[in-house]
Design a protein around this nucleic acid. Structure first.
Length: 919
RNA sequence: GGGCGCGUAGCUCAGUUGGUUAGAGCGCCAUCUUCACACGGUGGAGGUCCGCAGUUCGAAUCUGCGCGCGCCCACCA
């Protein structure tokens, strides 16, 4: 058995253990007869991504759930993989090409895709190795990728099904266009941001009344060329007589009608709206209602086009805005400008304003929205913390009410190409999608490909990752009785951030409901139960810096997780980050806040070291072999107390997992181990360790505590747990903590009581009394500046009952309070500082004259505190309604407390009276 | 405009069916290098639980109003 070093060195331990785990296949998830399945699907990181703090928190929590499940005897599987991340990855490779002066179009589709695959081979999967450093217990042999052949087949199959079931359609609609990525985006990929700009008030001359003008406000004068009408509210008195007339559009000069439409807000701006159907959703709808032409003035890259762009053809859109304003001014048509801030949609990826643009896209009408809501309302799918259920439901309700469809096509090359073929030579504008001679939709493609042309778009990445929970198990081919899909699906817990509840979580639920079973229009409760992709969703907060700012590259406030692992240890980082994560709120990160994790590991390490130094490690390979050493032994009150606390902390951890209160989990571990075990139990048992006759019992208790504690701890700090598991002799031959079963609180209690008899329920109270006494004695020593002296004595004034307790604990008291002797007295010694405790009054023998004034003040302060307590207690107990209505336990508790407080109060009064008069 | 949440010690947060005289970590002050651990021990200072009103025998906890802050959703150009 190697001796442990003085300070814990995580580096020396962690890599070694991970390699052992992996080579022994410790994380392999498989069907195990008689065991309950437990499956976590990793939220697939972008294949070219790097580990950031969000991943650390998220994946630590997943690992905690999975490792705990293993200890609870479940067949656990953590399924890893990466996401092809269409826009992000394609953009990266295009950027690289641009460095050598090329674009993807120079290469052509096929050659470009080869380039991307090449990039993926070189740079993909770095993040997976980083997760190994963190200790993630993924089943790496399964590592999935959303563009793998099998996965792609699932994606295309889903598309074909949805098309055949009538949920997918192609349509010319207003969509969010990113001029940088040059593709359409879904609403969820557009982020609204406040943008400072200008509000331009301008005037259009009325055609039928030369010299008269209509004033119009806009933030976008660069789209004037696309104006096809001016709209006012039908009930707006100011403009009623103008409806039906025309105004002159200033450039290119043209006569456009003044129309009335209810979509116009009378009290906004001038109450007259320029209508640009090609570049605004509202305008588009007004255009439809009034049968207006559509004039598109933009190119796909956001520049103004030559055909309709009038004088600004070729200009970049924001330059054109300024130029248009200038031209208005020159024409005398600009009435005034004012600074203005409005919300503008930005492309999430490219971080530029998106353009509402009329384009031909594939749209998905969401199926099973009603069922997705019911899954949560009926409690089959649970969010933790629960309040996120409202966010989820709210989004689904909006989708349903406003019939918002999902734009699933992207004008990219990197992704799943849409499995739709159009017969060559047919006008694409007038296709009949129900005619298989014109449009072919299948996974395999048409049998005569030479006569067809495939849709050039690919699918939104989220339209592949929404199948993640079942596509990874081989759907649509798998699903037979006895298959992994049957065994592990629905998966157990999903851990993710609230930012993708819409993008991913809700859509996975919908996909599960739609595909995990026979095609069915309406689902009943049993169907929902079987089809949902997971039962529990644990939502994490966002990691921010210490000032509450989002972490970002540009701020440079995002620490490198690998660097942190190097300095704190993966265990230290894991413990630290979970320890500071409040329940479902954002997390303010700073290094000194996670230091506690490293310190805790070191404390644990040294406690194990202390155990090692005090006696040979004995046969410890099962709980019974440890408890067996307690048989027939006489346990002290401290033993009873710490073993009761061990049972209690085991129950507390069980509660944390059951209720998904993961912030309370490290707190419970920390407090038990540091305060109860190290500060009190280990310290109090030191004297018994020096005695041959009692050492064995103490070591057995320590071994039992450490064993159970390592099992409780392993999910959060797996490396050090396994290291100590082995060095303290708990490991079976070549085994891991990973393979062990954790005793439940009930099992632990039963095992202890079987050999040692019932645990003493009153031990806690007795220990608390001794702890109070010791603390008071230490405090007095510190106040009188004799803290470092061990030869001071205390006099004790106590009744017979207390004396009996004190004498039983005398050795502990002397050693923990660092006192030479306790001397029992029957009368109050004069002129000594004193403290009143539940076990009697203690007097510090300072062996010199005390400062009477200071002592009087000290006691006086305490008297005031006690007085307040007495008043509160009296007020309560003299109220008959309290005595009648409060539970008996509360009333008797209040009585006991009042009595104890009174006793202390009286004793202090006597102490004060016994002090000599201060002059 | 609609929705969600937060306000407790200098800082970050616990406090889950209302029940003793409100807690932790960090920071701060003092003290100790005593044979597990200075990544440590011991002691201490520090709080009108945002405010007001209400319900109750009893409120940090429940209700209402107000103040301050954060986030999400949303087509007022």
């Amino acid at each position: 058995m190697p001796t442990l070093e003085k300070a814990y060195d995580a580096r020396a331990v962690e890599d070694r253990w991970y390699a052992r785990w992996e080579s022994h296949g410790a994380f392999r998830g498989k069907i195990e007869a008689g065991k309950d399945p437990y499956c976590v699907m990793i939220p697939p990181p972008n294949v070219t991504g790097m580990l950031h703090m969000g991943h650390i928190l998220n994946n630590t929590l997943q690992d905690i759930f999975v490792r705990r499940a293993r200890l609870e005897g479940k067949a656990a599987l953590w399924f890893p993989g990466t996401d092809h991340a269409g826009i992000a990855t394609q953009t990266r490779v295009e950027r690289k090409l641009r460095e050598s002066g090329r674009t993807r179009h120079d290469l052509g589709r096929e050659a470009f895709l080869e380039e991307v695959w090449q990039w993926k081979e070189e740079h993909g999967g770095i993040i997976l190795n980083q997760l190994r450093k963190l200790g993630a217990s993924c089943d790496w042999e399964r590592t999935s990728f959303t563009l793998d052949a099998g996965y792609s087949r699932a994606v295309l199959t889903a598309f074909v099904h949805l098309f055949k079931r009538g949920y997918l359609y192609r349509g010319l609609r207003m969509s969010n266009w990113c001029p940088v990525s040059q593709t359409a985006l879904s609403n969820e990929e557009v982020i609204m941001k406040p943008q400072k700009g200008t509000f331009y008030k301008m005037r259009y001359e009325i055609v039928e009344r030369p010299g008269e003008y209509l004033q119009i406000s806009t933030t976008r004068p660069e789209t004037i060329m696309g104006d096809v009408a001016v709209a006012v509210h039908p009930e707006d008195e100011r403009y009623r007589d103008l409806v039906g007339l025309h105004v002159w559009r200033p450039f290119p000069r043209a006569s456009i009608p003044i129309i009335a439409d209810e979509a116009v807000q009378r009290d906004f701006g001038t109450g007259a709206l320029k209508v640009t159907p090609a570049h605004d959703q509202v305008d588009f709808e007004i255009g439809k209602r009034h049968d207006l032409p559509i004039v598109d003035v933009l190119n796909p890259d956001g520049t103004i086009n030559q055909e309709c762009g009038g004088p600004f053809g070729g200009m970049e859109r924001f330059a054109a805005r300024k130029a248009a304003a200038k031209l208005l001014e020159e024409q005398g048509n600009l009435v005034e400008t004012q600074p203005y801030e409005n919300m503008v949609g930005y492309s999430e990826r490219a971080d530029v304003p998106v353009e509402p643009r009329l384009t031909m896209q594939w749209w998905l009408r969401y199926p099973k929205v009603e069922e997705a809501k019911r899954a949560v309302l009926d409690g089959q799918l649970r969010f933790h913390p629960k309040r996120w259920e409202k966010t989820y439901l709210h989004w689904l309700e909006t989708m349903e009410r406003d019939q918002i469809d999902w734009c699933v096509s992207r004008q990219l090359w990197w992704g799943h190409r849409i499995p739709v073929w159009y017969r060559r030579g047919i006008n694409r504008e007038e296709l009949d999608f129900s005619d298989p001679d014109q449009v072919h939709v299948s996974v395999e493609g048409p049998p005569d490909p030479e006569n067809w042309e495939q849709d050039s778009d690919v699918l939104d990445t989220w339209a592949s990752s929404w199948l993640w929970p079942f596509a990874n198990f081989g759907w649509p081919d798998a699903g037979a009785e006895g298959s992994e899909l049957r065994y592990f699906y629905p998966t157990s817990t999903l851990v993710t951030g609230f930012d993708i509840i819409f993008l991913w979580v809700a859509r996975m639920v919908i996909a599960g409901l739609e595909f995990m079973g026979e095609e069915k229009e309406k689902l009943d409760a049993d169907d929902i139960e079987r089809r949902i992709p997971f039962r529990d969703v644990y939502i994490t907060g966002l990691i921010r810096d210490a000032k509450g700012r989002k972490m970002s590259k540009s701020l440079g406030n995002s620490p490198d997780p690998l660097d942190l692992i190097g300095r704190f240890g993966a265990d230290g980082l894991r413990f630290g980050i979970v320890n500071i994560a409040p329940s479902g709120q954002d997390i303010l990160f700073s290094e000194d806040r996670i230091e506690v994790g490293r310190h805790f590991c070191n404390k644990l390490w040294n406690a194990a070291r202390f155990r090692q130094m005090n006696g040979e490690v004995l046969e410890n390979s099962s709980m019974e072999s440890v408890t067996g050493r307690l048989a027939g032994a006489s346990l002290t009150v401290y033993d009873h107390w710490i073993l009761s606390r061990l049972v209690a902390v085991t129950a507390e951890v069980e509660r944390c997992f059951k209720r998904f209160e993961m912030h309370a989990y490290p707190h419970a571990l920390y407090e038990f181990f540091w305060s109860d075990y190290c500060d009190w139990y280990v310290e109090a048992s030191k004297s018994r360790l020096k005695d041959e006759g009692t050492r064995g019992v103490v070591l057995a208790v320590q071994d039992l505590v450490m064993r159970q504690f390592l099992l409780l701890l392993q999910p959060i700090t797996p490396f050090i747990a396994d290291e100590l598991w082995t060095s303290l002799g708990y490991a079976r031959e070549d085994g891991f903590l990973n393979d062990e079963a954790i005793p439940t609180a009930d099992q632990l209690k039963e095992a202890i009581e079987k050999v040692a008899g019932p645990l003493n329920g009153a031990a806690a109270e007795e220990v608390a009394g001794v702890q109070e006494l010791i603390s008071r004695m230490r405090a007095m020593k510190a106040e009188y500046a004799v803290a470092s002296r061990r030869d001071v004595s205390f006099f004790v004034l106590a009744d017979a009952t207390c004396r009996r307790v004190l004498s039983q604990h005398e050795e502990t008291i002397l050693s923990l309070a660092q006192v030479g002797a306790l001397e029992y007295v029957d009368i109050r010694p004069d002129s000594m500082p004193a403290a009143v405790t539940g076990l009697g009054t203690v007097f510090l023998d300072v062996a010199k004259a005390i400062d009477v004034g200071a002592e009087r003040e000290r006691l006086g302060k305490e008297l005031i505190k006690l007085e307040k307590g007495i008043q509160a207690g009296q007020a309560k107990l003299s109220n008959p309604r309290f005595v009648e209505s409060a539970p008996d336990a509360v009333v008797s508790g209040a009585r006991d407390q009042l009595a104890a407080t009174r006793a202390k109060y009286d004793e202090i009064r006597k102490l004060l009276a016994s002090l000599p008069p201060s002059d």
